[in-house]
């Protein structure tokens, strides 16, 4: 199985590449659209506006939307998950991919960023009660596609899924053994 890690020039990709490797994939970092992969991973760190701007380079936006339209698998992580929504209050003029309806909002807790391990709430027992590592100041409060959530001032979505499109607000590559198990399940 082959995984392509989309390089949106936002943060170091070493940890995510190692984690996907450990899940048994042949992993390649891709700087421009490229086919021949079973799954794409879209990591993102930093400001929504900056990462969204990177989508305009190399026709990433069209390529990713086309990939999703063909029903192929893609996993968004952190800001990479937020990009799957329409927009974000962090940078209001920036455009997401709008695969999921809704906007990214500021977390409603007096301490931001949210940093650390939180236990997932989910109806699916694979996710329920598991601890994963979060580092974010923004999140999606509500979505019909939310399959696991956590509280930080208010409930927000930890995992969203629609067919073969999956988004993690947290960092599975930093979430210990469970994080790797989760990645493995969702990449396949």
């Amino acid at each position: 199985m082959k995984a392509g890690i989309i390089n949106l020039n936002s943060g170091n990709l070493l940890s995510i590449v190692s984690a996907v490797d450990k899940c048994g994939f042949e992993t390649t970092v891709i700087n421009e659209p490229q086919t021949g992969f079973d799954v794409l991973v879209m990591p993102g760190q930093g400001r929504f506006g900056y990462v969204s701007q990177q989508l305009e380079n190399n026709n990433w936006r069209e390529f990713i939307l086309d990939w999703i339209a063909q029903g192929k698998r893609i996993v968004g992580i952190c800001v990479g998950m937020q990009l799957l929504f329409e927009d974000s209050v962090e940078d209001e003029s920036a455009k997401g991919l709008a695969v999921f309806p809704g906007s990214v909002e500021k977390l409603k807790h007096k301490k931001t960023p949210m940093v650390g391990w939180a236990q997932l709430t989910s109806n699916d027992e694979f996710y329920s009660q598991q601890f994963v590592y979060f580092v974010n100041s923004y999140g999606v409060a509500n979505s019909d596609y939310c399959i696991a959530s956590v509280n930080y001032g208010e409930k927000f979505c930890a995992i969203v899924q629609k067919d073969n499109v999956i988004g993690f607000q947290f960092h599975p590559e930093k979430s210990g053994d469970y994080g790797l198990e989760l990645l493995k399940k969702c990449l396949n």
């Binding site: 391990w117 939180a118 709430t121 956590v150």
Partner: peptide, 10 residues
């Protein structure tokens, strides 16, 4: 606000 958190101390 503090109570409504799933975060645990590290």
């Amino acid at each position: 606000l503090i109570k409504k958190t799933s975060l645990v101390p590290r």
